[in-house]
Design a protein around this nucleic acid. Structure first.
Lengths: 134, 134
DNA sequence: TACAACATTGTACCATACTACAAGGCAAGA
DNA sequence: TCTTGCCTTGTAGTATGGTACAATGTTGTA
């Protein structure tokens, strides 16, 4: 069986080894077995789990979300529906964020376009807009 | 001249009075004058400045950005162009964020649609997808 | 005048997600 | 064997943007 020390695991997952320890403290990674000298020994399953965590994170889940997902996966009574529900909830949150960012973008674009780009900032239309509109 | 105590100012801006103190510590709000008893006394100019801060924040500027904007506004040598540049930079960042969120949304939507929504989570396609794709 | 509501200060805490030490032990190659 | 590099631990710091609290002083209203 292939085992990894913390450094190798971190390298394989392309993250800082302190982050691995952090995830262990957070309960995202199980406490690994130890070598006679006390070194953490990780397996391929741990690497898979780490990949799961990193991928879920990339997909917009917070560490708290991921912990829930991992628990769902372990609990024999949990259903696919629960997981689907969490994914749907996250999609809704993402949609809201996009809408918010779009509105910010529109506002800033309008503001930037009214600025002719010269003259003292005290009379910059962008700043004026911030003061007039509230 | 109308003056506000910290509570009135906070109320007028619809924020926590501790936030006002926080902004003062951060240098976003100037140190206000004091009443004989040591109470902070704010003017309409302070309220305007606070509105500027809150509006800029709403438009996607961080407190550090806002501090820069406020400094630009004060410096007589600064130009509108500098402010426009900052706004444009922020627009670029916002666009990138939107693109990132869209890709997350697409991925999650695909994952959620492959999940039929029943059965044990151990065999949920969403979780499978997280483990297979890396 | 009593008393509630507001103000003051410094400091510490919250969440999120790490990152960085110091002081020491262990392992592997030249 | 020596030296470098990796490992261990606990603790503390980073960034962002606040929020909370205790102990104490002040103000306004009934």
């Amino acid at each position: 069986m292939i085992t990894y020390t913390i450094g190798k695991l971190a390298q394989a997952a392309n993250i800082n080894h302190e982050t691995v320890r952090f995830y262990e403290r957070k309960g995202l990674l199980p406490k690994p077995s130890r070598s006679p000298a006390g070194y953490r020994l990780y397996t391929d399953d741990d690497l898979k789990r780490l990949h799961f965590i990193l991928l879920a994170k990339k997909h917009g889940f917070t560490l708290a979300d991921i912990q829930e997902l991992l628990e769902l996966r372990v609990a024999p009574s949990s259903t696919c529906e629960e997981v689907k529900l969490k994914a749907d909830q996250k999609i809704t949150i993402i949609k809201d964020k996009i809408a918010e960012l779009r509105s910010m973008q529109r506002a800033l674009t309008t503001l930037a376009s009214t600025c002719h780009g010269s003259g003292p900032a005290g009379k910059c239309p962008i700043l004026d807009a911030f003061e007039i509109n509230n």
